[in-house]
Amino acid sequence: MKKIILLLALVMFSTPAFAGKIEIKGSTTVLPLAQKTMEAYMALNKGTVITLSGGGTGNGFKALIDGTTTICNASRFIKDKEVKAAVEKNIVPVAHRVALDCIVPIVHKNNPVKNLTKVQLKEIYTGKITNWKELGGPDMKIVVIARDSSSGTFDAWKEMVMDEERVTPAALTQPSNGGLVTQIGSTKGAIGYIALGYVTKAVKIVSVDGVMGSDKTAKNGQYKISRPLFMFTNGWPEGETLDYINFVLSPKGQALVKAAGSITLN
């Protein structure tokens, strides 16, 4: 009898620890793949509750350091400043590379321009180059289209292409990836950027510095506008959290990563 009560007590007290609750917070770029893998993981492991929210990489790290999240999604590596803040609070950030992100410039199908340099891309987006003529194309005004400033792709573009310089205010903005593809498909002089997974046949990809953005060139590092995506934990993960991250890295998880528009690791 005593044993049973003990067992019951054990079960009762330990329930929250076993049927874990994982909180994920951070980058909006990682959000789609986190959402897909988390839904699949919860379907496989009934009783596990995973909550997911965006807010951006910076806010994700803040939450990890404050101890309000289990996993921090990040579209960049942790900054020195953040490591210092974490150490002060006895938090040990551990990085797990979960996917690659590859952003490609896209133009209208009939645009003859095939290749642009990173510098040219930057000058288009800062408003220094305004005509396709200057890039070896026809005499046609460039319609610069950017994603809305709150999107993760916008951030990535800003970091990797713009060197943190401001996008020209004359740039049109699109709130969604789908809208961007439609708009570029129907605008002759348009240029935009998008994660490789969202590209459709309606638009044409332009190579950057002579390298075409693809799964392969992103993985072998030849293509410049790509970056690893991370999930950070406090210390080496345990229990459910470890299970979940292993699931993301498993073939099944990586298939979902691909479905979410990101590039798998291998």
Binding site: M140, K141, I142, V143, L172, Q183, S186, T187, K188, G189, A190
Partner: peptide, 13 residues
Amino acid sequence: PFLQDTFDIPSGL
């Protein structure tokens, strides 16, 4: 698209 073609402007939006 109609505005783009008719007025020959870069973007119809």
